[in-house]
Every structure is written in C-alpha cells, then in structure tokens.
C-alpha cells in the first residue's frame, strides 16, 4: 500500500493475472482432492464369489453366487475375528468391507455372522425379512420370516433411489441378537474362545446393473436421540454401497 503509482506493464499485469488465477484454482483443486481422498470408499471392495451352479426360480434360470459378511461390536472384535478393518474409529461395524459388489441377474446367497447384542428396533417393520427368495432367511439352520423387534442386533437393509433405468432392489434382513448368556457374545483375548454368535443365510436375486446402498436400521450408534449418532451417522461402518455389475 505504498503511495507510488503503479509501473507495471500490461504484459506483466496479464501474466500476474493468469498466474494468480491459476494459483487460486489450484488451491481449490487441492482442497477438493483432499476431501475426495478423505471420503473415498474403502480401498478393498468385497466381491461375491460366482459358483458354477445355476438355479431355477419362478421358471427362470439364474447363475449362483455367494458372499459372506460379519458384523462386530467394535474394531477389536473385528480384528479378533480375522478382519483387517480399515475404519478409523472404534465403532460397531460390518466387515470386511462396506462396499460389496454383486453380479447382475444372479441368485446371490449371502451369509452374515452377527456377534453383537441388541435391544429394540425403532421401527418394528425392519424386524421382517423382506425381499429374499421365498420371503425367508435361515438363522442357525431354522427358516424364519421375521425376528421380534426386541431381539434384533442389527439389520442389513439394501435400498436405492427410484429411477427409470434401474431395477428395484430392496432387501431387509434382521439379525438375531446374541444373548448376554450365550457363549461368545463379546470377544476375549483367550485364544480358546469359540465365537458362536448367530449365522444368518438368505438369498435374493439381483436385477440389472446399478448402484444401491445398504445400511443398518437398528439403533446401534450413540446419542440421546434414537441412537443413530456416531457409528450410524458415519459412512462406512453400518452403511455402505452395493454395486450390481
């Protein structure tokens, strides 16, 4: 802010303008890049394993695929169970990845191991099994169509945005909670412990390619309001993506 009259030549001024503008564009770009990498999907996607078998449902033949996930009370438990979680916080979480990839037009059989306790669903509707073949799932060998709202540990709910060019896919699976009395409810450092938990198995049929999301509808975060804070409000713990490709 000196009192001197500017002596800048026109070309110098133009150069300064170009450099200045580019510099600021670069700053915005760096901010964008930082945010982008901070919010990127988990580096590892979880792919369904295709099998050679096929199955006929309602007169149509589908190839088969299987996929297995687990849900853990916290990071320590996930690690104990052999999954290297990439999540940073010690939250309840699904593993081994929050981004699952399923083949299109396929009969997908999914297995979820649940090792967590539970209290009560906010919305009892999500105690029902929805969207699976036959409307049932198999809990430790028994077929069920729903789990009472106060016996759910988590849910695995796939849904999507309605749009004209994507096949609808809605699957809701409530997971039977593990009683305090059950062996293996919480992880211990004792290597001899047998983690029992519960195993939920179910099948559904994917449509055409498209992006979907899944999340848990069971209030397992913290906070005073409906327990949907913390883990539930952080992407990649109890929520994630489903890519049908």
């Amino acid at each position: 802010m000196s009192g001197k009259e500017s002596t800048m030549t026109a070309s110098k001024r133009a150069l300064s303008a170009v450099v200045g503008v580019l510099l600021m564009v670069a700053v915005v770009g760096v901010v964008g890049f930082t945010l982008h990498s901070a919010s990127a999907d988990p580096h590892k996607k979880l792919y369904a394993t295709k099998t050679a078998e096929t199955i006929v449902v309602d007169g149509k033949t589908y190839p088969k695929a299987t996929i297995t996930m687990g849900v853990y009370a916290d990071t320590a438990q996930a690690k104990e169970m052999g999954y290297n979680t990439i999540n940073k916080k010690d939250y309840v979480q699904y593993g081994p990845s929050s981004h699952i990839v399923l083949p299109a037009h396929t009969y997908v059989t999914m297995t979820i191991h649940g090792y967590d306790g539970g209290e009560k669903l906010n919305a009892p509707f999500f105690g029902k099994v929805v969207g699976t073949v036959g409307g049932t799932m198999n809990v430790d060998g028994v077929d069920v169509t729903e789990i009472p709202a106060d016996q759910v540990q988590h849910t695995f709910t796939i849904h999507s945005l309605p749009s004209s060019n994507r096949d609808p896919l809605f699957v809701n699976i409530p997971l039977q909670h593990v009683d305090e009395g059950d062996n293996g409810f919480l992880p211990t450092k004792d290597p001899g412990t047998n983690y029992k938990g519960h195993t939920m198995t179910f099948s559904f049929i994917t449509g055409g390619a498209g992006e979907y999301v899944w999340n848990c509808e069971y209030p397992c975060g913290d906070g005073t309001y409906a327990k949907f804070g913390a883990a539930m409000s952080a992407y990649g713990y109890m929520s994630g993506k489903v890519s049908v490709a």
Partner: peptide, 21 residues
C-alpha cells in the same frame, strides 16, 4: 402409475437415499 416417495427434510447420513417407490 408409479409414485416416487421421497424425504424432503435433511435427516442425516443417508437422507439422499431415503426414497422408495
């Protein structure tokens, strides 16, 4: 015809996906 059911009030993480048909 088809109806889109949406959520028009920001409701947290998956507000954008709180839609059904």
């Amino acid at each position: 015809g088809d109806i889109d059911v949406k959520c028009a009030e920001l409701c947290g993480l998956y507000h954008a996906y709180m839609e059904t048909s």
